[in-house]
Amino acid sequence: MKKHEEEIPEFLEELKGEQPFHVPPTYFRSLQQDVMARIGQEDAKPRTAFFPTAFMAERWFRPVLALCACALIIAMVWINQSPEPAEVAINENFSQEEIEQYLLVYLDDIDETYLYQEDLSGMDWIEETADLDESDKIWEGLLDELDEETLQEIF
């Protein structure tokens, strides 16, 4: 008697000889075929998993996947800190002349304070007008030209 069998009580040893369970006669002969058929059926189905099972089972795959996800997050954060896409598009798609033309046509619609805040060093004609001291002089000149009636209409 094996060592580990010594602990089985006698009343249970007596029952051990009986085999109350049975299987259909050809069960073990067909089991292999049934399992292989099910594997074949599963393989024939279109895969829904994004990554192949063989990759998912590899130990290196999950850490690499996690690193890729981290890199993607970092890239997204970096992209968000880069210049606004609209700004990049303007700089890339329009020449200096085209921008100047646009501003001349729509100058009245542009908030004056915006012109003071932005770096418009490349646009000489705006720089002249936008200079704080110069603009004060222009406003003073305009006020001088206005008569009393027009001022009353405005205010």
């Binding site: 089991l31 049934d34 399992v35 099910r38 594997i39 599963e42 099972t53």
Partner: peptide, 22 residues
């Protein structure tokens, strides 16, 4: 139950087949 055991055994061997490379 035999039918239950058959299902479980088949699932077991399918998992063995799929995971044997690990």
């Amino acid at each position: 139950d035999h039918d239950d055991a058959d299902d479980v055994v088949q699932n077991t061997f399918i998992k063995v087949y799929r995971g044997i490379h690990s």
